[in-house]
């Protein structure tokens, strides 16, 4: 299967990447390409120009910056999985990265690519949403920080504008406990439903594959804030959420899974 025809250029720096992406309205960045190339092979994405940022090795890092960790957008899943710093400070992120695809996919795919792709069925975006991460983007008008809660907009849609490049992900430290529950039927599959629960002061709960983008469970979070028991909070997990039906699960089954997985995740937190 071949993608439709496109032109291809390599970015030599972040500034060069921004200049090149601005030269063509239908251009897209490519890093590891493990979200984009499959879409292009199915012709669901048909960019006319690919700007390859794969050579910008300066964007691959994991740094301790005091109250948060900074992860370069080009950091591959396998590096997130095996980073000693992340395993010590934010073990949930290493664990979630270890569940993405399979080893070959994790060798190529990048955290920035997964986030910029913004797939509601992906593990890392929901985990970052529960962790209250924020995304650093640079564009023609400079650098800006976008909280995860405002970043994921809809089906494969994020707050990034077409001429902006995601360069870093900031994740707050101070997580006292966490749980990630991924429900799928076969190895290497996407989650039918996934739940990320994080205790960092208050408790945050985010869902994988319960909508067109990663979602926070406001029902569950509100319940916990007002002193509800785990059972009561889990019962409200899918409040206001209408998950899609597909070959793997009906909408009703997803709601059921969300409640069960949320209860299990909250039990692990306490």
């Amino acid at each position: 299967m071949y993608p439709s025809k496109f032109d291809y250029v390599r970015a030599l720096s972040v500034d060069d990447a921004l200049e090149k992406i601005a030269s063509d309205e239908e251009a897209k960045f490519i890093a590891g390409g493990h979200s984009l190339v499959p879409l292009m092979k199915f012709r669901l994405a048909t960019p006319s120009l690919l700007v390859d940022i794969g050579g910008l090795h300066d964007l691959s890092y994991i740094k301790d910056e005091g109250d948060h960790l900074a992860i370069g957008a080009l950091t591959r899943h396998t590096e997130v999985e095996h980073s000693q710093l992340l395993q010590a400070e934010l073990p949930m992120l290493s664990y979630v990265a270890s569940l993405v695809g399979d080893p070959q996919v994790r060798h190529r795919g990048t955290i920035g690519g997964s986030v910029a792709h913004g797939d509601g069925a992906s593990d890392l975006p929901a985990a970052l949403l529960a962790l209250d991460a924020s995304m650093i983007a640079v564009g023609p008008s400079g650098r800006r920080e976008i909280p995860a809660k405002e970043f994921f907009k809809g089906f494969l849609e994020t707050a990034l504008s077409p001429d902006e490049l995601l360069v870093e992900i900031k994740v707050p430290k101070g997580v006292s406990s966490w749980s990630y529950k991924k429900f799928n039927r076969r190895a290497q599959d996407w989650a039918i439903v996934g739940v990320a629960a994080v205790k960092n002061g208050s408790t945050k709960v985010a869902f994988v594959n319960m909508g067109s983008s990663p979602l926070r469970s406001t029902g569950c979070e509100d319940a916990l804030r007002s002193g509800a028991t785990i059972e009561e909070a889990a019962e409200r997990a899918a409040e206001g959420i209408e998950p899609p039906s597909d070959l793997n699960a009906s909408s009703e089954f997803r709601v059921h899974l969300a409640k069960v997985l949320t209860r299990r995740a909250l039990e692990e937190l306490s």
Binding site: Y8, G33, H34, L50, D52, G54, P103, Q104, R108
Partner: peptide, 20 residues
Amino acid sequence: TVLMDGKSVKSCTVLAVQAE
């Protein structure tokens, strides 16, 4: 699956230009 710089990758999901 082939090794690219020592690590396994699925070569149907890598563009040849990315392997320059």
